[in-house]
Simulated assay, not measured.
Amino acid sequence: MDRDTGPRGGTEHLTVRREGATLILTLNRPEARNALSLPMLVGLYDGWLEADEDDAVRSIVLTGAGGAFCAGMDLKALAGGGMDGQRHRDRMKADPDLHWKAMLRHHRPRKPVIAAVEGPCVAGGTEILQGTDIRVAGAGAVFGYYEVRRGLFPIGGSTVRLQRQIPRTHALEMLLTGRPYTAAEALRIGLIGHVVPDGAALEQALSLAERINACGPLAVEAVKASVYETAAMAEAEGLAAELVRGWPVFDTEDAREGARAFAEKRDPVYRRV
């Protein structure tokens, strides 16, 4: 694997770096368990855009610094009438939807997003998690929607998305009790896909990203798009839409390169053409 190529972009609460073809976004406010802030939201949205616009990026890993993923909204700042990083308010004013895009409520990156979770991933953290595609967690990670315990509503998309991602009875229990869930429980109900030893989530996520990066990028992006756009369709409609997405992939130079590489017993060299 090519190693880190250095930081790109980011804000005081969101670091961005590249490792080979993977863009790594790190929520970086460990003193607050990576509670959401304006600088973090702006940095997240810019990171999603960078991944979308840079064809050299084939996958994204989202993680948190200091042994935490994200403890949700900064309720202390919210109660005090503001959030850290008010200098970013012009960005929010220019795009009132920016925070929802940052939290993957109103934006879906075209590249696969892998979450690497350690420690708390609760409230807004679990809401962001719902916008990711593949999820890895350390054994000590904790998940949950605490909003109802504070008299709040999980408005980051959870009442819509969660019941589509896990069985409804589990979704309702999570949303209505506000109780914490262990990584083992989250795996059992299907909220996450992997549990690894504490401290190993990022390495496992990068390993998965490397596998994705070795695949044809046009095929990967078309598969992801097809899965999401057909999710709410009836089967016949979805199958028709799949052909619209899938057939053009077969007519690419990358598809021909994949067949040649297989015949020649070598690794393919994909060029997104």
Score class of each variant (00 low, 15 high):
residue 153 F to M: 09
residue 222 A to N: 06
residue 62 L to Y: 05
residue 175 L to Q: 04
residue 241 A to Q: 12
residue 8 R to L: 10
residue 223 V to M: 14
residue 69 F to E: 01
residue 99 H to N: 09
residue 40 M to I: 10
residue 25 L to Y: 04
residue 24 I to G: 00
residue 93 K to S: 11
residue 243 L to S: 08
residue 154 P to R: 05
residue 211 R to W: 08
residue 36 L to P: 01
residue 13 H to T: 01
residue 138 G to R: 04
residue 259 A to M: 15
residue 17 R to I: 00
residue 58 R to I: 05
residue 251 D to W: 13
residue 234 A to T: 13
residue 195 V to R: 02
residue 67 G to L: 10
residue 91 R to M: 09
residue 21 A to S: 15
residue 209 A to Q: 00
residue 8 R to V: 15
residue 93 K to M: 12
residue 64 G to A: 07
residue 85 G to L: 03
residue 101 K to Q: 13
residue 250 F to K: 08
residue 69 F to R: 04
residue 166 I to V: 14
residue 260 R to M: 06
residue 59 S to W: 02
residue 181 Y to D: 01
residue 223 V to P: 00
residue 103 M to G: 02
residue 21 A to H: 15
residue 84 D to Q: 14
residue 112 P to D: 02
residue 146 Y to V: 06
residue 14 L to V: 04
residue 180 P to E: 04
residue 259 A to K: 13
residue 175 L to I: 13
residue 167 P to H: 03
residue 251 D to M: 12
residue 187 L to T: 02
residue 137 A to T: 06
residue 244 V to C: 10
residue 239 L to R: 15
residue 199 G to L: 07
residue 95 D to N: 15
residue 119 G to V: 08
residue 223 V to S: 10
residue 258 G to E: 06
residue 112 P to L: 05
residue 174 M to V: 14
residue 215 C to R: 12
residue 237 E to R: 10
residue 22 T to L: 01
residue 182 T to A: 01
residue 177 T to I: 01
residue 95 D to H: 11
residue 124 G to N: 04
residue 82 G to V: 09
residue 188 R to I: 00
residue 98 L to T: 04
residue 28 N to Y: 11
residue 242 E to W: 07
residue 156 G to E: 00
residue 3 R to F: 12
residue 169 T to P: 01
residue 110 R to C: 08
residue 34 N to C: 06
